[in-house]
Design a protein around this nucleic acid. Structure first.
Lengths: 208, 208
DNA sequence: GCGGCTATTGGACCAAAGTCCGATAGGGCG
DNA sequence: CGCCCTATCGGACTTTGGTCCAATAGCCGC
């Protein structure tokens, strides 16, 4: 498994459009997968590697915008580039507010699309990295016992062992034991690292 | 100086539009200031309290989009809501990519504009809070001597005093002295707080 | 009930951090 | 030339944090 090319998913009901987009995008070095409808795309297994989505806005069944909404609640974010023949302003604004990377109207310049794809893939890679980090940290947190979790929360507050013990109604000695286990389970080499792990849970997710 | 109402800055070359917008917006409880051109707005002193900008896209001289670009390099971010009579998709996409809160085409619903203003002001308040925090921290960092700054950087790495001393070619004892001064000047009560101050410099600014 | 996990603590001990004291030395400035 | 800031250390001491070994007790599942 070497690092393969990013995958561009194209969802468009027009077969000729799918064909021409496939030619254009694959010639730029991307892998391409096409779908004739939003439903077909949703039935497909979520992508594992770097990728982005090219959506036609107008489609029978779910529209591109509706697909975007449906994916907003999904586990990972997707980078979406919209293309449309009959776009209006409110449509494009809605798409962009929904986090779309770009919104192109036909006819568009090939290099504009490729540039948008590049940005979208880059965004996807960033998002994936963040998600991977967060879920990695969450996995470590889940290995903590309830008590360890409490101690963890107070340690990253900057409280002394003594104070933590008082707050939890246990001895300082016990705090030390839990604390050591927390450092071990969280794989933190110092308090500074531990604080970053704790803050990373919120910060990375919030940075949008 | 009590907490006064948020100020909505309206920039539009059409006097009748300015008048009707002023009526609408002030009736919703906002203070309103109008400008006939982008240049007039730029000549105006930057706002101190919560505010947002309503920009017409088409204007003689600098357009709304150009004003947005000009403000992008400014000290603080502005929350911008665009309104336009003849908007096209590429225009709206550009505005949204540039961080606009909304992009409305005339004729628009009054409540849509007021909702957009509300979101824009809320965003402005958030941004101002973040900027205030960052500049506060930066001010503290500036009071550090060069050596203290170096020690500061290494402490938040999680390094031990001994290691820091070795890295800087000074004794552990000296590190302690600097470290104590850093904690004092940065007003941090614990290493955890210090780490948050250090990380806050980057994180808050990056969260966009 | 036995084994394992969790939570709790004790003692001993070492390493690290923080706090007082004082000291030296170079640079910039009135 | 004194004065202050900065940077550098030393000693002495206390408080914290971390580690190792060992022990008790409750709970859960097989």
């Amino acid at each position: 498994m070497t690092a393969s090319a990013p995958v561009v998913f194209v969802v468009d009901d027009d077969a000729s459009v799918r064909k021409s987009l496939t030619r254009l995008i694959s010639s730029a070095g991307y892998a391409v997968k096409t779908f004739a409808s939003a439903r077909d795309y949703l039935a497909h297994a979520p992508p594992k590697g770097p990728c982005c989505l090219i959506l036609d806005v107008r489609m029978p069944g779910l529209t591109g915008l509706e697909l975007q909404e449906a994916l907003a609640g999904a586990a990972h974010r997707r980078s979406i580039v919209f293309i449309t023949g009959h776009g209006d302003v409110s449509m494009s604004v809605k798409a962009m507010k929904g986090g779309a990377v770009d919104f192109l109207t036909k006819p568009f310049d090939s290099k504009d699309l490729l540039a948008a794809i590049q940005r979208a893939v880059a965004k996807d890679v960033r998002d994936r990295g963040d998600e991977a980090k967060v879920s990695d940290i969450q996995a470590r947190v889940r290995t903590l016992t309830p008590r360890e979790t409490e101690v963890f929360a107070l340690v990253v507050t900057g409280m002394l062992n003594k104070q933590i013990g008082a707050a939890l109604g246990i001895g300082e000695k016990t705090v030390k034991v839990h604390r050591a286990r927390v450092m071990d389970k969280m794989r933190a080499g110092s308090v500074a690292e531990l604080v970053r792990l704790a803050d990373g849970l919120g910060v990375i997710a919030a940075k949008e």
